[in-house]
């Protein structure tokens, strides 16, 4: 239900009369501070709309924006009044918005949340896992980014509020995101490895893997999905070849060490 646009603002003191706890928690929250009040001077009514009709009707819940069930969109609009910019600019219409994930599903507004982002859970990874719990098994795999150690978090790579890229990657492309921490792979190289230049996730699963270096499959078989050239790339590596250099330890990468790209004039097969 929406509040009447003709209603008048009544101020937080009036609200406090009936909603003492909510007003107190608002006052203690980030939004309730003096600096913000200079920009948004209607306090509770900045989000809930003018409360005049609501108060006059003795607190009729139908006469104020309450953001209860079925009014998630209205709640989001209230937040977007101020936050429709920067990292949140693409929220409206984003995959989370389209799947009815509202601002208040992740953030607390009244009661104190975690950190400056007012998160509902103890940390960001825990928050994301409440819906994306299939990711938990990836994070627990042997090869992983330092997320379970608290050195990285989901939003280091993703913008949950929406992006123009697939999978909410917070950069112009997947590779552009990876290069932020792995700038040594950025090149350009004299010899670029084509799939690596296009998309790191052709070979890597950034969320976690059972294989070294977050690889999607075991080397040499991963390499053999694309390489079947004469000599060793097409060779069948089975139990009879365990102790050969093409499969032992780093397998193909024992020799093709600069597989992301080589800057060596003789590096076209990434061995220099």
């Amino acid at each position: 239900m929406t509040a009447s646009t003709a209603a008048e603002y009544i101020g937080i003191q009036e609200c406090r009369g009936c909603h003492e706890d909510a007003a107190a928690s608002y006052g203690a929250s980030l939004h309730g501070q003096k600096g913000f009040a200079k920009q948004f001077d209607h306090a509770c009514e900045t989000c809930h709309g003018p409360g005049g009709d609501h108060a006059a009707a003795g607190g009729d819940a139908a006469k104020i924006l309450s953001f209860s069930k079925g009014l998630k969109a209205a709640g989001n609009e209230a937040c977007l009044q101020c936050h429709d910019q920067g990292a949140v600019m693409y929220f409206a219409g984003s995959i989370h918005d389209a799947r009815s994930v509202s601002c208040t599903d992740c953030h607390r507004i009244h009661r104190p949340g975690q950190g400056a982002e007012l998160l509902k859970e103890a940390n960001e990874v825990a928050l994301c896992l409440t819906c994306h719990h299939a990711m938990r098994s990836d994070l627990m795999k042997a090869s992983h980014h330092p997320m379970r150690e608290g050195k990285m978090t989901c939003s280091d790579c993703h913008n949950p509020h929406g992006t123009t890229t697939d999978d909410l990657v917070a950069a112009d492309s997947i590779n552009d995101k990876c290069y932020e921490c792995h700038a040594e792979k950025r090149g350009p190289f004299l010899w670029d490895h084509v799939p690596a230049r296009e998309d790191c996730t052709h070979c890597h699963n950034p969320h976690g893997s059972n294989h070294q270096r977050l690889l999607k499959a075991r080397v040499p078989y991963l390499c053999q999905r694309c390489h079947s050239e004469p000599r060793h790339p097409g060779t069948l590596y089975d139990a009879s070849t365990v102790n050969t250099r093409a499969i032992y330890n780093r397998a193909c990468l024992n020799c093709h060490a600069t597989v992301h790209g080589s800057n060596h004039p003789s590096g076209q097969t990434f061995m220099r």
Partner: peptide
Amino acid sequence: GQMALAPNNEAAR
């Protein structure tokens, strides 16, 4: 043997 390591590079966006 000699191998080239990751080269210095720059980006401006």
